[in-house]
């Protein structure tokens, strides 16, 4: 963990403050970048902050630390959502992102592991992260290492067959050190997931594939922390899928639950309104 809070309440208050800062930085980056995957960036803010500040065993000063937990952003279009969090926990300075998306910048729409410290794998093509995570988890077990592998997926992404091939393998190989996290914001690019390609009953699917399933509010820090603190030991026989119910575009009134804000750009007025809205969000 990257904090010294001993009391849960203090930690949660600290993280809530971070939610506001990070969301505003996402907005800023979208402006710098000339456009970005803002909706899905805003939906995973609490998940990422809880993971990077509290759950993951990492050392931002030593990003390649051998026994660190691995975090794979399978929904790689979340670059604009994860990069501010990595800066915030200390992998690099915030100002490093001043040229986000620009010519020769290390920071693009889809994070590159050789350019962005803290990124464990380059992603961007959907459906790749969970198979990679299965391999990491198998590798950790072979090495008798105690680190865990976490993989964050989009719900639209669950249309990809490779997600389910990996789900099958994760259960088959009894990967208790593997955790999938689903950012279930119910929208994909062309529209609502249940209209474009239904994935429900998603909970039953993961269960049928042999995973333990938890369903939580992905914007509620207490639920996030409780869930990840109570994961079964890595020696357990089942991988866990944490389904996080979230809101795409969370925090910005005109973006929330709007398909079209999957990707977008902002002018001065829309940027200001976004930041004003973010100041007002009340998290549980």
């Amino acid at each position: 963990m990257i904090h010294n809070y001993t009391k849960r309440e203090d930690l949660v208050n600290f993280l809530k403050g971070k939610s506001v800062e990070v969301r505003k930085e996402i907005i800023k980056l979208v402006v710098t970048a000339g456009g970005g995957h803002v909706g899905g960036g805003l939906s995973m803010t609490e998940i990422l902050l809880a993971m990077y500040y509290h759950v993951l065993n990492i050392d931002p000063k030593n990003p390649k630390k051998e026994d660190r937990d691995r975090f794979i952003l399978s929904k790689g279009h979340g670059g604009v959502g994860i990069c501010p969090v990595l800066a915030d926990v200390g992998y690099y300075d915030h100002c490093m992102m001043d040229d986000f998306n620009q010519y020769l910048s290390p920071f693009g729409m889809h994070p590159d592991m050789h350019k962005v410290p803290g990124i464990d794998m380059s992603t961007g093509s959907l459906g790749h992260g969970l198979p990679i995570s299965v391999g990491l988890a198998l590798g950790a077990r072979l090495k008798k290492a105690s680190w865990r592998t976490y993989c964050l997926l989009g719900d639209g992404e669950c249309n990809e067959g490779t997600v389910w091939e990996a789900a099958m393998a994760g259960a088959h190989f009894k990967l208790g050190n593997l955790t999938a996290i689903l950012d279930r914001n119910r929208l994909m690019l062309d529209g609502p997931v249940n209209e474009i390609m239904e994935i429900d009953p998603i909970e039953d699917k993961w269960k049928a594939f042999g995973w333990d399933v938890r369903i939580i509010d992905g914007h509620d820090y207490n639920q996030l922390i409780d869930t990840f603190e109570s994961l079964p030991p890595i020696s357990s026989q089942k991988p866990v899928c944490v389904i996080c119910n979230t809101t795409k575009g969370k925090g910005v009134s005109y973006m929330e639950n709007q398909t079209k804000w999957h990707y977008g750009g902002l002018d001065e007025a829309t940027e200001k309104q976004a930041c004003d809205d973010i100041d007002k969000i009340c998290l549980p």
Partner: peptide
């Protein structure tokens, strides 16, 4: 697409 322009997936298309 340059920055400072208001657009969404819908307009881009």
């Amino acid at each position: 697409m340059a920055g400072g322009l208001a657009y969404t997936t819908d307009d881009l298309n």
